[in-house]
Nucleic acid binder design. Structure first.
Lengths: 127, 127
DNA sequence: ACCTCATATGAATATCTGTTCATATGTTAT
DNA sequence: ATAACATATGAACAGATATTCATATGAGGT
């Protein structure tokens, strides 16, 4: 008895496995949100900002100077990080200080870095 | 005494902090590789594939059927996952089975999912 | 040899996203 | 109020990347 296939142009080979996995899959909303979390971490510029904030809270100007990026660029990327709730900010006069929002992020970032350091040789930095 | 600014159009406010952070920054290569790791996880299609493989090894056809994606799409994305060493594959006749490459990845993915589940309400799934 | 099925891949397209430039907002000092 | 500085943001552009379509490879069966 064949299932009706939608986009898949081949036959289902392991219905039992498919069914087992289907039950355990996180719901679509969680999946998209999580993928989006990684998307925010995935950009070089943003990731540099994040790793910088791993050490110390910083203002936009410091970040811009340290990472050798235009103030505008840093600001734009900080906005995305804010939207994703990866960083928080506090204002002190004209200066706005940014820091990581919680330790979850730190752990994820740290795991990522560790993974690269350990499995070092193989992984490509570019496509 | 002012530093010479390159792209930064404002003044350095906390030289001490900048210097402290500069020392602790991971080198550029590690940064890029790690950002790239997240980049591979960041796509919806690939992330669905990854979370699926979290439960069980699967062949291309099963994945394509379960996730309701064209075989071509799944194959393309699996190739990127392979290049990034996130999945490995074994051939059995005509069928190719894919599974996660190591438990590092599982942990990172799991952390991501957990983070979303806990800090639930706030995070946006789309920009 | 051929045909069929599972998978892979090249090329083209369409969409998304990072970066820059110009300018606006908000805060402090004069 | 005006000026100076730190930051934010809208619009435009450029480059990247996901998806589709058509086709190739590779393996098993007849």
């Amino acid at each position: 008895m064949k299932k009706q296939l939608m986009v898949c142009d081949c036959n289902v080979i392991h219905e039992d496995v498919v069914n087992e996995v289907k039950d355990k899959l996180p719901n679509l909303d969680e999946l998209e949100k999580t993928a989006n979390l990684f998307k925010v971490l995935a950009d070089n510029t943003r990731f540099k900002i994040i790793t910088t904030l791993l050490t110390h809270e910083m203002c936009v100007c410091d970040l811009s100077y340290l990472l050798n990026m235009s103030q505008s660029l840093v600001s734009h990327q900080l906005r995305k990080l804010r939207k994703a709730r990866l960083v928080k900010h506090r204002r002190e006069g004209k200066v706005v200080y940014y820091s990581l929002d919680d330790e979850h992020i730190e752990r994820i970032v740290q795991y990522g870095l560790d993974h690269i350091r350990e499995s070092g040789e193989g992984f490509e930095s570019r496509d």
